[in-house]
Design a protein around this nucleic acid. Structure first.
Lengths: 189, 189
DNA sequence: AACATTGTACAGTTTTTACTGTACGTACTT
DNA sequence: AAGTACGTACAGTAAAAACTGTACAATGTT
């Protein structure tokens, strides 16, 4: 973590402060459906002042290299960390994506959009089948009533998901920042 | 589910269509950190044409009443279902919140906001401690460099979380729908 | 007051998820 | 080509989460 040139006491003090932040980040990362330990890994990388390799991570996290491998892969899938190329080193190096706004957007673009698309697809298909069934039994008033109810609900659902898609679009194209602007960090310049 | 007056074949056809939708909703519900089975429960309630009690749910889901109880509680916490009062019945009745936009907003207002607040709190505290540590060792250039780096990162993080708070605000106060408007459901009037 | 019904706390079980160690494929080095 | 270093697939183990059955408190009924 690049602070081993400090004397032990001061190093420990820095570590202690970082640790609480890292653990909090890790804990809250379950919002993204990410295991706590992978969240910790993220936190570790967040404070690292240079890209890390799997062995270094394992050492710091006191976990197996295999776990680091899978953890990093998860974070890569979410684009929360990036692979870094460094001449000389044969090891793969990773660093966090420091643009958290981008990470937030990517999360929705990756996970939520997939879910939304799948839901719309299934609903469209169900609407189709419902319509067929309805037409095949137009004389059956009870059935018609049930099917129309279902159709109304499913059309509402599709409308909602399409809204969600548009919302994700405004995130991805950055338009959201016109509505809800970023502000510069507070504190000394 | 209110369709037992239909003949068996047609009833089965309706069930089959609903089932796939329900399962998809359930599966995608893990985005909210909700167990798949609770997602299914939600789907069941979604298609129910009247509020259900725990025994009915257990029967349909082929699961224990205890599980229904905890499942419903989870959904209540997220405001995805509402408790309904019906004179006569001693049993508690529940129905889904059909306003999915509202459910979406509530989810962020409840889960994300809590997380954001906790993160800001921890970061502010860490920034404080960092500042104290820095002032106590102003002669130590190495330490100062490390701490300033950490401070810069944490201030960025706070700025991001404050943005997230404002985003959630626009969801909660409904302003988001001025930017990304709802559209009426498609299909026949 | 005795009895019945309902929801849930809690302990125990099952199922799922996270983690580890080994073994191996790939790619670089000599 | 043999040797070495690296990342990950895979099988097994440990830990966590979901689920069930029983017991009981709260509330309503007779």
């Amino acid at each position: 973590m690049g602070l081993y040139h400090l004397d032990d006491e001061r190093q420990a003090a820095v570590h202690k402060i970082r640790k609480r932040v890292i653990e909090n980040i890790g804990r809250n990362m379950d919002l993204y459906g990410i295991p706590v330990s992978t969240g910790h890994l993220y936190g570790l990388l967040y404070f690292a002042d240079k890209p890390m390799n799997l062995d270094e991570m394992g050492q710091e996290m006191k976990m197996s290299k295999t776990s680091m491998s899978t953890g990093v892969r998860t974070l890569l899938d979410y684009k929360m960390v990036n692979k870094v190329w460094e001449k000389g080193s044969r090891k793969d190096l990773y660093e966090v994506e420091y643009d958290w706004y981008q990470s937030f957007v990517d999360f929705f673009d990756i996970k939520w959009r997939k879910s939304v698309e799948s839901n719309i697809h299934v609903l469209r298909k169900a609407l189709d089948e419902t319509e067929k069934l309805r037409k095949a039994h137009e004389d059956d008033e009870e059935l018609t009533a049930v099917l129309q109810e279902d159709q109304a609900k499913m059309r509402e659902a599709v409308a909602y998901y399409k809204w969600l898609e548009r919302l994700i679009d405004t995130l991805v194209d950055g338009e959201i920042f016109n509505y809800v602007p970023k502000e510069p960090p507070e504190g000394k310049i």
